[in-house]
Simulated assay, not measured.
Amino acid sequence: MEQFWNKNTGSNRPVSPHITVYSWSLPMMMSICHRGTGMALSGGVSLFGVSALLLPGNFESYLEFVKSLCLGPALIYTAKFALVFPLMYHTWNGIRHLMWDLGKGLKTAHLYQSGVAILVLTVLSSAGLAAM
């Protein structure tokens, strides 16, 4: 085994498949972001649930605390947008993945068109929900 690793280390070849051999594309980046938002949403829900069990007080007391900070409307809107953006992205992109499971939109041109549509829908729906 040592001879195997010495030979491979001496050749200076990248481990296959290495990330540098791929050219980055919109569908590739959206797939990575879909996985990331899924993990972030799962972690956020878990953290919220554990904190609801362990922290003193109730949700209303924490909501009153945030209101007492007198944060400006721009900061509150930005925070709400940042919270809802991953949810909207993951939801819209999940619907896109369900369409792929049905065999629709799998051509390269459709991948890019649906990708741009998902990004536009994500921004618009996030902005709308944050305004509520």
Rank of each mutant, 00 (worst) to 15 (best):
G36H: 01
C33K: 03
F59I: 10
G44P: 01
A40H: 05
G44S: 08
P27R: 02
S68Q: 12
L69S: 06
N58E: 14
F48G: 07
E60Y: 14
G36V: 04
L63F: 14
L87G: 11
L54C: 08
G38K: 00
G44L: 09
A52T: 05
V50F: 15
L69E: 12
L47P: 03
S51A: 15
P56R: 10
K80F: 08
L47N: 05
Y62R: 04
A40G: 07
P27M: 08
V50H: 09
S31W: 04
G49S: 14
L26W: 13
L53Q: 12
L71H: 03
T78H: 14
S46H: 02
P73S: 10
T20A: 11
M88K: 06
N58A: 14
L69I: 09
L53Y: 13
G57K: 05
T20F: 05
V66S: 09
V66H: 06
A52C: 07
L71D: 01
M29Y: 12
M30H: 01
G38M: 02
H90G: 03
L75F: 09
P73T: 03
E64H: 14
W24I: 05
G43P: 00
S25P: 00
P73I: 03
V84D: 04
L55C: 07
T78P: 08
G44F: 05
P86T: 01
I76N: 07
K80P: 00
L55I: 06
C70M: 12
E64G: 11
Y62H: 08
I95A: 11
V45T: 10
L69Q: 13
L26G: 03
F85W: 10
F48K: 09
V21D: 10
S68L: 12
V45H: 07
G57D: 07
L83S: 11
L41M: 12
L71T: 01
M39V: 14
I95D: 02
Y22Q: 11
T20Q: 05
L55H: 02
V84A: 01
L54R: 01
L69R: 05
N58T: 13
L55P: 00
W92F: 15
G72F: 13
Y89W: 04
M88Q: 13
T91V: 12
F48Q: 08
L75A: 10
P27D: 09
S46V: 07
A74F: 10
M30R: 00
F65R: 04
A82L: 15
P73Y: 06
L69F: 13
P27S: 03
F85K: 02
L63I: 11
F48P: 00
K80L: 13
A79M: 11
N93T: 03
